[in-house]
Structures are given as C-alpha cells and as structure tokens.
Amino acid sequence: MATELELKLMVQPEYLKSACTFLDDFCEKNSGEKDDPTGNTRQATLDLMNGYYDTANGLLMENGIALRIRAVNRQYIQTVKTRGSSRVGMHARGEWEWSIPSDTLDLTKLSDVPLPQTLQDMSWSRDLIEVFRTDFQRHVWLIHFQDATIEVVCDEGAVSSAYGQDPICELELELKSGPETALYGFAKHIAQSIPVQVSVVSKAQKGSRLKHRRIEFPEKPEAKAPLLRFAEYWYETWLVYWEAMFYLKDEALLQPIRSSIHQLKQCVPTEMSEQLEALDARYDILFKNHDKSLLPGLAGSLETGIMMLETGHWLNKQIH
C-alpha cells in the first residue's frame, strides 16, 4: 500500500496548451547534465482507459472506495483507492495496485485492503458493474523543486457513463519524495503564469456525480469549534463552489463564492484577510464590467489560483 499525496489544479481547456508549454520550458531551463537523475524531464505521453466499478446503488463510493481497472500499453492494472485523510485542499489517500492478466476484476486481491466493516463480507461483489469510464491522454513531467521530486501530469479527456459526460482538464502534482511544502511551492510557481485553481473533486467523484447531479460540500463545524476549523470549512466551501460554477456553467454561483471568502476573511491573519478582500474586489469589478459571460474572465484570473494556494498552504501548515 502506498499513500498518495496529491495537489490537483483545475485548468480550463483554453489554457491547457499554455500549461504544457510552461512545464516544457521549466524542464528545458532547469535540466541537469545528461543522465543526471536530478534533472527535470518530460516523460512519455500515455493514453489511459479506465473502468470504474461499483454496485448500482453506489455502495463503494458511499464508503469512500474507488475500484478501477486501467488499461495502459496493453497492460491491465487493478487499483483501489480509499478516501483517506482530509488535508485541506490536498488529496491524501491509500492506494493499492496489482497487475492483472485481463480487463476482468480479480477480487481476491482485495484481501490486502482494510475495507470498512460494512464491506468486509464481500456480498456486494456479486453486484458489481462498470458504472463509468475515464478516458484521457496524460502528459507527464518529473520535476525536482525545493529538495522534492514531484510528478506533474496534465490530463485531458472525459469521464462518461449512461448519464452523460464531463470533461477532464486538470494538472495533478504528486509528491514522490521530499518535503510536502514543495507541492505548494511548485503549484504557486505555475499559478504565477497560468490560470489554475485548486480542485478537491476526484475523477471518481466526477463519475458518480453524473448520475446524482449532487455537489458534495464539507461538513460544517459545530458553533463551538476552533476558528481554524471554520477557516478550513470556508476554504473548502470556496473550492467546491468554484468547481461547481464551471461544471454547471452557472455564474450565479459567484455569489456564494464571495460569501465563502467573506466568511474566510474573518478566520485568517490580517495580511491574508486583506489579500482575500482584494480578490473579492477583483470579482466585483469583473461582475460589473462583464458584457455577455462572466465565466471567461473568472477562468483567466491568475489571482484566484494564487490566493487559493496561499490560503491552502497556510492552513496545512497550521493543521499539520
């Protein structure tokens, strides 16, 4: 079992090519000597086809389990991912992988996985079906930054099921070794030049969402909870509304986004609160000046991603 620590960034399709060019340029400018293992390099591009399995009533997803088979280069990999622990805008999940001979599930492998008690009798295994697919092209870079090794991937494709389709257009930064702070450090380096925003919605959640059309929000703290817990809540609520605004193509969701930022301002240090105030003022200008659609202006804002990353980095340092 490996623990996957990952920071996911939304990229709108019109900025995807620029993101790839940025990463290529970074590797070219920061390449080591030939055969130097610390050099920054672009890896082979992959075409990934993935089937996700669950019961018709979504029992695995309900228990925080994602079960898939991935086909890559004529090889099959069966993977289980768990919901893992909350890392405030980051994905920290348990992950188990096995090579299998075909695109047929081998459920005997799950004996290695500490399943929730409700799933341990395996009775649900008789009712498994492929509930959705994610098929995408993956561009891969190996980056060395701030004493860390980070795998950066750019995924472009779609998640699809009988209930519809949702595009995949994102960057994922996965820590391979070194300090966790380097994930935020390199993400902020990207965000200074490319409009990206933090995302907390996994591909499996996107697939499940096609059926239920339900946006998942964090659990609101009790009134007596510490102020830092409220900061975490309002930050993650901001992220969820932001992703939902583009998923639903509903610019009216800017209002609850601004409300979340207003609440967050009251839970963070003065300097950060002032930066959030400036971001909200930027939204106000965009709202008053937009002619036809507000979404393109919001998608192209560098300030949003930078502030999401600054806030998330601060929160993670306080909590961990």
Rank of each mutant, 00 (worst) to 15 (best):
L254K: 01
P37D: 02
S293P: 01
R229P: 02
S85Q: 08
L119K: 04
A225P: 13
E310R: 14
R126N: 01
A278L: 09
K265V: 09
L107P: 02
L228G: 08
E4H: 13
A158R: 14
A2W: 13
V268A: 07
Q165M: 13
H290T: 04
R83G: 04
E14W: 04
H144E: 01
D106G: 00
G51H: 10
P296F: 12
V159F: 03
L264F: 00
E277M: 15
G312F: 08
F132T: 14
E174I: 10
A231I: 02
R133W: 10
A191C: 10
L315H: 08
T181C: 06
D166E: 15
R133N: 07
L302P: 11
P226Q: 10
E222Y: 09
L279Q: 15
E174G: 05
D35Y: 10
P195M: 07
D106P: 01
E4R: 14
V200Y: 02
R83F: 13
M10H: 03
L302R: 14
F22H: 12
E232Q: 15
T104R: 15
A299F: 06
Y241D: 09
G58Y: 12
M122A: 05
E28T: 03
K203G: 00
L107Y: 06
A187M: 08
S301W: 11
D127L: 10
D106N: 06
T3S: 04
